[in-house]
Design a protein around this nucleic acid. Structure first.
Lengths: 167, 167
DNA sequence: TCGAGATTGTTCGGATACGAATAATCTCAG
DNA sequence: CTGAGATTATTCGTATCCGAACAATCTCGA
């Protein structure tokens, strides 16, 4: 756990405070660092790439998924973006308010809602996505090239397992 | 990106839609899967371990950090938990309301706030943490044992780099 | 001793996040 | 043809999340 204490200090304090318990430090390290890293990376992107266009990480991801698959169904966008449909409704409201996306009810099935980016949304993605990808390259270069694909695969293992458990 | 499309379908569609752009798929895979995995793991823990005691992931982490370092200063808790001080104020309000933690102003420095778990908070952690750690073991066992420590180290690289950039 | 600058925690506004409840729509078996 | 069951998106309530602004406190150099 990064923070005001070193890793050694942290493990030492944990051992001292919880000596009556069996702990798996390695297991703790996997989950706590996963969440810390994701949080830190999201904040980094929001501050350095997305702030200028007023987008949150999730708003960007939703625009990205829509850009790739449009016209996209909201149930698919939510799943591809890893957020609930309730959350997507709110994020799309924000994007519509910014004039970046538009929704319409499907002709084929009245339950479904389709989403497209607006022209303004397309223009934004043409410049924002390359900047975002450059930052992705910078960040991922911290991971040794030989480990990178494996790292992504291990992350997918975690996602797939926990999401399968939810079904 | 896990979702309603396979990885191959996704990369194919991206290539087809954005053929005018150079893309680094590997870089994209690192950041998008990092966030997806973290989100999925958090939801998994909230549903399967934390829901019963009404705690969110972050509320648990704050309790955990406080348990280890108490009496803990709020600036340190926020840093160790990877959240802002503004967020911590809100989370501590929630924990106080639940009777699980208490705050007091430091005698030594009037700017600082100290936090302790209450007796009820300690009791909860005595049973909740082992259950949480068991789930951590289950989740991390998805990562091959030989890769686990390295995986956590790579995550720390991402966190440290992005947080250093924020300073 | 004093004041500028720094640090701390809180409040505010607005965005994300989700489960549960709800209404609308579709499917399919009888 | 009809109704039960399933699926969809939205609303609601509540929690988290953060940056900016603010008030209180501390430090340190002049």
């Amino acid at each position: 756990m990064a923070g005001s204490h070193t890793l050694a200090e942290t493990e030492s304090q944990i051992t001292s405070r919880l000596s009556h318990m069996t702990l798996d430090f390695e297991a703790m390290a996997v989950t706590s660092n996963l969440f810390r890293a994701a949080s830190a990376v999201r904040n980094h992107f929001e501050r350095n790439v997305l702030a200028e266009s007023g987008l949150s990480w999730t708003a960007f991801v939703v625009m990205w998924v829509t850009w790739i698959w449009e016209p996209a169904e909201t149930r698919d966008i939510a799943e591809e973006s890893g957020i609930s449909k309730a959350t997507l409704t709110g994020v799309l409201k924000t994007l519509e308010k910014m004039g970046l996306a538009e929704r319409s009810r499907s002709d084929a099935d009245g339950r479904l809602v389709l989403v497209n980016l607006t022209e303004k949304g397309h223009k934004l993605m043409e410049t924002l996505f390359p900047a975002f990808n450059r930052q992705e390259i910078e960040i991922s270069s911290l991971i040794p090239a030989a480990d990178r694909a494996n790292f992504a695969d291990m992350l997918r293992l975690l996602t797939n397992y926990t999401q399968d458990q939810a079904k």
